[in-house]
Write a protein that binds this DNA or RNA. Structure first.
Length: 110
DNA sequence: ATTCTGACA
DNA sequence: TGTCAGGA
């Protein structure tokens, strides 16, 4: 009936850590490490086992690729934060298109 | 068999 | 940053 995934669906934790490791080619232990470093906050079941959402998987893939590019954990945290910010700003612009203004000729725009 | 936390190199 | 020990 409804095959369009809602945003909530996207963020609902469903995958066990072993599945997440499979999907991302990351070690289970390291996935836990990235959480400890603040890059991730997966859901938990009643018993306390981690449940990873589709969004979490995306984040893990981002982490994997950025690590391969030589970034450290702190750098990756910055990238993730900035990407989230870009997404937020783009949505804001999309919802509320700003009026373009032109400053005085040759003047600094800051 | 799987996942958890905490310690440590 | 990543690995290992030990327990539920």
């Amino acid at each position: 009936m409804n095959q369009v995934p809602s945003d909530k669906d996207f963020r609902r934790g469903v995958f066990a850590i072993s599945v997440a490791a499979d999907m991302t080619a990351l070690q289970i232990q390291n996935i836990r490490v990235y959480e400890r470093r603040g890059l991730l906050e997966p859901d938990r079941s009643a018993g306390g086992t981690r449940l990873y959402s589709r969004a979490d998987i995306e984040t893990l893939l981002r982490i994997r690729d950025l690590l391969a590019e030589g970034l450290n954990i702190a750098g990756i945290a910055r990238v993730i934060a900035l990407e989230a910010e870009v997404t937020r700003l783009r949505r804001e612009i999309d919802l509320n298109p700003p009026t373009r203004r032109r400053g005085p000729q040759g003047a600094s725009q800051r």
